[in-house]
């Protein structure tokens, strides 16, 4: 009943173990450098985003959404996703400057994705999605919804315009 294992197999298993360790190493390396997926586990009352009464206050009310700088000068993009659009529908951001995006869904699941970049978030009703990133290429990009949200899903997109830093004003 001895377990029979070939020499070749043993060598192969060592190689595979090496592969897994290497993959883990690469993952840890980037995680340590601060590359984390959006994971803030922060709740909000999605049905009352437009009111100041729900959990989370009025951060996502109509007068508060858009691009701003916080007290430390960091760029903050506050947005709402609702069938079938992003609000505000157009934003302007400076090339190559890090910004923090905070976005919540008003109704069903949505996503936000800017093609050819790593700005990619799931928007789950009841939760605030947050990420910090930067966009490096000038021009207009669609910010599109990439999670099926109903019949108008494919038409759900806004626009982000990337301008040179010296042309950017708030």
């Amino acid at each position: 009943m001895a377990f029979h294992i070939d020499k070749l197999e043993k060598r192969w298993i060592f190689m595979v173990a090496g592969f897994v360790l290497m993959a883990w190493g690469i993952q840890i390396y980037y995680a340590v450098q601060g590359w984390h997926p959006p994971s803030n586990v922060e709740v909000i009352d999605s049905a009352q985003l437009h009111l100041a009464t729900g959990v989370g206050g009025d951060e996502f009310s109509e007068q508060n959404i858009g691009v701003k700088r916080d007290a430390d000068g960091q760029l903050i993009v506050t947005m709402v996703a609702a069938r079938y659009g992003f609000y505000p529908q157009e934003i302007e951001l400076p090339q190559g400057e890090a910004f923090k995006i905070r976005i919540a869904s008003f109704d069903v699941l949505h996503g936000i994705y800017v093609p050819l970049t790593n700005l990619n978030l799931m928007l789950v009703p009841g939760y605030v999605s947050e990420a910090t990133t930067m966009l490096n290429n000038l021009g207009d990009y669609p910010m599109l919804c990439h999670e099926f949200c109903g019949m108008g899903h494919a038409y759900m997109f806004g626009n982000v315009k990337i301008v040179p830093q010296d042309e950017f004003k708030l």
């Binding site: 980037y30 984390h36 700005l119 990619n120 999670e147």
Partner: peptide, 10 residues
């Protein structure tokens, strides 16, 4: 863990 952002839901 982080590269997933490039292709999630594409």
């Amino acid at each position: 863990y982080s590269m997933n952002a490039l292709i999630h839901n594409t």
